[in-house]
Nucleic acid binder design. Structure first.
Lengths: 339, 339
DNA sequence: TTGAAAGCGTTACCAT
DNA sequence: ATGGTAACGCTTTCAA
């Protein structure tokens, strides 16, 4: 029964079968356009019989509305970014906008390529993670003629809208909190390169805060971002070797924090008595681990929802020419058992 | 300097500026097509000057090749599926195929809608996770006239290619392994509904194996899939209440297994001495946790790569009319400290 | 190697 | 409420 499909049916085919023009089919297939109930029924029937599926490639070409929102994230395997994408998708689906998702592997050159390939699809808006881009990528975005949103960061020179927070401040805040609790010999565990610009900002915040507080920064960088759990454990081991008297560590993410925690457990060090540990991101893991991890909640899903709002404001005509907005999202330290 | 963009430049604009026909531009912009080096240079220059970006919506309409591979996964926030998507993306990018990703939230009706909306984009192949679909979804896929791959499962009645493994067998194997190690009062922790069909299959495998071994199945179902870490902990608590003499639990995923592990730790139960725990998926977490988790490795990334291979065989003409293939992937029990 | 013409399948626009 | 016609921006096809 492998009936070779000669050719997919088009609107014209449906129109012929229903005895109407293809314009009428076009209208009947959309909720808003005018069409009599009877006509709609006939057309629906014909479409079902033929197994017709609208070709939105053609529709997009004609209407200049592809229904795409292009979104780039550093990694597809990251709970925080996944939450943001969920927020975005949910916030967009009521208006029939589809997320076209791509990931950059924390690589600006990959991002540039990705942005170009996405722009070819003529998305109606472009959402990127982070505020550091190649020159060409910046140009592409600025000239695309569509709303642009940079998320998860506060770029010095925004391209369009911004929905983010200061990664620097999160680690400063965490650092001060630990200081208040009496910790003085606080270390930092993060990735070895600055590919993860948000991670690099958090490290910078840590260093600044330490100096302000009159403490020496103690940084252990370990591997290419994103730093894994296992690398977090390795970093803690290195740190203990170099600074055996360390009494707390701030980690670039909950994953590395958990790795550090596990390393402590293997070594028989108790957390937080022997060493306190703080993470970032408020992953499920942080809440569940024993001891649970003190961390930073950054409301990843809200970032996505807010981004969707800004995009929609521009796109649905409510505010098509609004000036670029910087939406500063709040974060909060979640104190748990580990610090 | 907010220069209002009148209209995005087209090939015709580039052609005019370069003093050639738009056909020549079309060819020059692609690596393969014939065009003299000099012409290429001129055209590249003109394109750069205008900030021209190819419109692949129009290109796709004309060539009937959109360059999309549609992929559906249950959840975007799942390390295993993320790995599969990575494998797919990597395996596809050399030939300029782009993954169009969507998630179903473990809901067959959402899947149906998603598949239709993706089919409208005229992808060149369709890859779905799992083998259970609504009737309409099946029809849509079967009639789409493109290669279809069902992953992560072994459907009874495949639509096209299959790249999967028997979820039932994974838990049977785990169950037998625990039995061999001397455990007899083995429980199972999973989701409360069958939305996660792969999870439901694993539970079935557990039940079958237990009966074969002459043991009573003890199942604690807890919450809608995907079951979280916290729910895994809650499920363990319930299980201990109902069957205080339990000596091992098999969990539907490493996440719930970790939740169960943490619950044990909070209760002062040692793992595996008081109770053994096994997970599924071989997440980073399983390797890192203390004690590390015995689990099932299913080679998620390989599933993606193999899927890419099958799609490419059909698409690149090497084997355009090949019969549907079922590619049985292997899995393995990873024995660690927890069981 | 290059160009001209004819679509690709839909929607915008203007009539009726 | 419905239909006719002309795009939309590209590639295919056929010629030169």
């Amino acid at each position: 029964m492998s009936q070779e499909r000669k050719k997919a049916p088009t609107m014209a085919d449906v129109a012929r079968l229903a005895g109407v023009s293809s314009m009428t089919v076009s209208r009947a297939l959309r909720a808003d356009a005018p069409a009599s109930a009877e006509t709609r029924r006939k057309i629906q029937e014909a479409a079902d019989e033929l197994g017709y599926v609208l070709n939105s490639t053609a529709a997009g070409l004609s209407s200049r509305k592809t229904g795409f929102i292009a979104v780039t994230i550093p990694s597809i395997n990251n709970s925080n970014f996944a939450d943001t994408v969920r927020g975005l998708t949910e916030g967009l689906k009521d208006v029939n906008l589809q997320v076209l998702l791509g990931y950059t592997d924390y690589d600006m050159n990959a991002e540039e390529k990705l942005i170009e390939s996405m722009l070819r699809r003529r998305p109606e808006a472009l959402v990127v993670t982070g505020g550091s881009h190649t020159g060409r990528a910046r140009r592409l975005m600025a000239n695309a003629g569509i709303p642009v949103v940079e998320m998860w960061d506060l770029p010095e020179k925004p391209i369009g809208h911004v929905v983010g927070f200061s990664n620097r401040e999160t680690s400063q805040a965490m650092c001060r909190r630990l200081y208040e609790k009496g910790y003085r010999r606080i270390g930092y565990i993060g990735g070895a390169s600055s590919r993860d610009t948000r991670g690099a900002d958090r490290r910078r915040g840590y260093e600044e805060a330490m100096r302000e507080l009159g403490c020496d920064p103690r940084v252990t960088a370990f591997g290419d971002p994103p730093i894994t759990m296992r690398q977090g454990g390795g970093a803690l081991a290195q740190m203990l070797e170099r600074w055996p008297d360390i009494d707390a560590v701030i980690c670039v993410s909950d994953l590395s924090a958990f790795g550090a925690l596990c390393e402590c457990q293997r070594r028989g060090l108790s957390v937080p008595q022997d060493i306190a540990i703080a993470g970032f991101g408020n992953y499920d893991l942080a809440d569940c681990a024993v001891p649970s991890l003190t961390t930073v909640e950054v409301h990843a899903e809200r970032i996505g929802r807010r981004t969707a709002e800004l995009v929609l404001e521009r796109l649905t005509g409510e505010n098509p020419d609004s000036a670029p907005v910087t939406s500063l999202m709040d974060f909060q330290i979640i104190e748990r058992e580990s610090a």
